[in-house]
Design a binder for these strands. Sequence first.
DNA 1: TGACATACTTTGACAGTCGTAGTATATTTA
DNA 2: TAAATATACTACGACTGTCAAAGTATGTCA
Lengths: 123, 123
Amino acid sequence: MMTEISSDVIRGYNDTMILYILKKEPSYGYEISKQIKSISDGKYRIKETTLYSAFTRMEKNGYIESFTQDQDPEGSGKKRTYYRITDSGRRYYREKCDEWSLTKDVIERFIELEGEGEENGND
Amino acid sequence: MMTEISSDVIRGYNDTMILYILKKEPSYGYEISKQIKSISDGKYRIKETTLYSAFTRMEKNGYIESFTQDQDPEGSGKKRTYYRITDSGRRYYREKCDEWSLTKDVIERFIELEGEGEENGND
DNA sequence: TGACATACTTTGACAGTCGTAGTATATTTA
DNA sequence: TAAATATACTACGACTGTCAAAGTATGTCA
């Protein structure tokens, strides 16, 4: 049985991933989902519905702003809705990063990995 | 504004924390909640309802077993329901630890902390 | 007597994820 | 030319774990 990404942990951090990408430049749904896939080496693929509902939520919260733009001359696909990160979104991203450190730190006190300490044959 | 533990990340890992404690010896609700608090240096306090609903869920899933035991001669408090981890629970715990490594690894590709790499002024 | 710690249960709300399905255009393949 | 595939998104509804609020009950301590 393959170990898979925990959607319970990811929950709430999807926003962070999206903001991480938007920090560099404005982008749109399909492109972002491909970037998440490639950055994670295919280990995580955000679901479409999750992605678009994150957009709605984050726009409502003022972390991102949408705008439409004529697509590239190459004109691949339909019209797109682009999103750009706001100052508030950047702040939120930084907070989530801090929160991550803290949370990770706590969770790891309850995690034991093979070949970590515990040298004296337990069990 | 104090950064706090993300209950979105914790979500699902409450079970793992509980199992981590039960791996050592059987225990009961109140005691477990105090241990979680102390192991995390007070940084995380599991909510009562979260704790007891985790018991119900994990017992249903066969990760833990309950039993009642006469309390210590000191007899502090009411009757208690003790829980012990099962083999299946130990396996589940190990899987969650593996899952954690993987998930952490992926999330951290989207996290930037102050004073981490990024020496060549990007942006 | 009253506060506080211990020990747990019930109920119901909430938020983020996700399966399913549908719409629509453009490009590639048979 | 038809079908498959990639692009780009929306709508709906179910599910799950968390958690606030409130209640029950016992023991300890001032």
